[in-house]
Design a protein around this nucleic acid. Sequence first.
DNA 1: TTGAAAGCGCTAACAC
DNA 2: GTGTTAGCGCTTTCAA
Lengths: 352, 352
Amino acid sequence: MVTLAEVAQHAGVSASTVSYVLSGKRSISANTRQRVEESIQRLGYHPNAGARALASSRSNIIALMVPLRTDMYVPVMMEIAIAVATTARTHGYDVLLLTGEEGPDAVRRVAGSGLADGMILMDVELEDDRLPLLRGVDAPEAPGGARPGLRADQPAVLIGLPADTSGLTCVDLDFRATGALCVGHLAKLGHRDIAVIGEAPAVYERHTGFAERTLDGLRSEARELGVRLLHRPCGGGYDAMAVTLARILDERPDTTGFVVQNESAVEPLLALLRQQGRAVPEDVSVVAVCPEQVAVQASVRLTSVAIPAQEMGRYAVEHLVAKLDGRGEDVVVLIAPELTVRASSGPAPARA
Amino acid sequence: MVTLAEVAQHAGVSASTVSYVLSGKRSISANTRQRVEESIQRLGYHPNAGARALASSRSNIIALMVPLRTDMYVPVMMEIAIAVATTARTHGYDVLLLTGEEGPDAVRRVAGSGLADGMILMDVELEDDRLPLLRGVDAPEAPGGARPGLRADQPAVLIGLPADTSGLTCVDLDFRATGALCVGHLAKLGHRDIAVIGEAPAVYERHTGFAERTLDGLRSEARELGVRLLHRPCGGGYDAMAVTLARILDERPDTTGFVVQNESAVEPLLALLRQQGRAVPEDVSVVAVCPEQVAVQASVRLTSVAIPAQEMGRYAVEHLVAKLDGRGEDVVVLIAPELTVRASSGPAPARA
DNA sequence: TTGAAAGCGCTAACAC
DNA sequence: GTGTTAGCGCTTTCAA
């Protein structure tokens, strides 16, 4: 193993000089710099991560906590994770992959051991166990008063919005606006009865923020525009979708607009509508909230609001890095939704 | 930050004693152990990862290199990654997430810096840049002779099989046997003309091992059983599938059996067959190589060979940990495929 | 069964 | 612009 001392010797300079060449924290003559860099190349030197972390109290590692469950949005999660990893690298950080399994303990462990300098949490629930640990020091105490050791003092960014964002930095698609946008689009086309096909019931039961906030947006915009709205959670697959669709059409036969927020329900819905002789978009319109790829590859090219996975991952890292650099405050970043009109939505048919 | 020294003082013992209580590397009296453990609890002590890594030359981190591209099997990748992370934790390791982007440099960087103790590589290609760095010392030298610094001396396990596995440990589904199994199943049902719908052309172009090995298995079994086989790569989505299917039926109108190895082609295929009035499984049979969930949630429950993502992730970690513990040799672990018969395959229709 | 102490390789004062 | 040096917190001999 090549050490900094060996590089120093080889280049005929002191250890600190090598260190400073590496960090750029003080000016080095062109000559010296070149000799050192040459020695580094020649010897194939790589700074030891542990030693560096110990001496500098910085690991240059960001922890990313991904949900253990894979009952939804797996490709989105993956895309976010990859965006986080690549963005982190451009800032000189590596990414540690944690699963939600360990829960709050993982936060304590990673923060306590100095394994990571900061963390990014995905799949945040409205009331999340891990949040009390992560709130900034200026956040109001939890009811019950100060509990020592409750703070991990770990810079963090959430992907997703909890109920209470005080003292936290969050990045997310503005799902409330997304819901409103979908209803608005359909309403403008004349649809008066809209059905929302949502995530699996479990997603709502555990109070996943994005699902509930989308629903909020859908409902309030529907109220605003005088449109009737029916929401039904729906598991993935054909059988679940068949049941759900039947119920919806039974309860609201005049439904002409659908909003789908569930990747694995998209194709079943289209197939079932086709099977029932309802043409898209002539008879019914469908708007999806899903990754771009799903919208484009579906059997009918879907009018959709894309989930900007890459952007979320990138923003999360950039805000975290800003915090680690002492810049950066606690903010909530809501990415504005964009609705792309494709082939699945059109004017509502004339009323019977 | 609580240090080991503080714990020692609090417990009235020496630093080394605390260290040994933690590592279990020498016997400690029950009394002492208890006092130390109590102090650890009380002070909320977590050993510093950097210091530990520096002193022990072990980071207790496993690096996982995932493919940057997300043109295939994303849910499988994610499932493997999660299985790796959870299994690693049970062995006391954390997981560092690397993307394929950096290529061989990432291997050098991670190995050289001691950031990780070992690595797991996914999406290995038949001829992979990163492999020369990872081969064991007993492996034959690359043609061209010994090149110093070519070895990273990094214990590694591959998920997937390269062309040359000498000096490497690999874990994978036996895709050759998988291909044979699929053809065998269809042949036994009387199908004599089988079409294979494969991954996107790009996957074959970059010589991804599993795709080519599946094809091998399909072809040799077809030859063996006297069955005609036509292979066509196919991108995801309806449009690509429509073109591919039309070509296949044009070239081989008697095709009654399909093998699909492409998640995003499964549903389009079923929809198109339906649309053309070909009933599954009465007129044509379909066998898929895909994750269990896809097979079960498809519009027709698919006869399939499941991709054992969890198992692959788990085995990879276990073999790597064995290597790190000084146990464990270089082996190729091929997981035997299992074909589950569902509703998409049946006897070939009587010949016209 | 326990303690004392010498590093592990690097960073960042502090000197010049 | 460069060198000297004191730690960072832990592991692990060596000694008792």
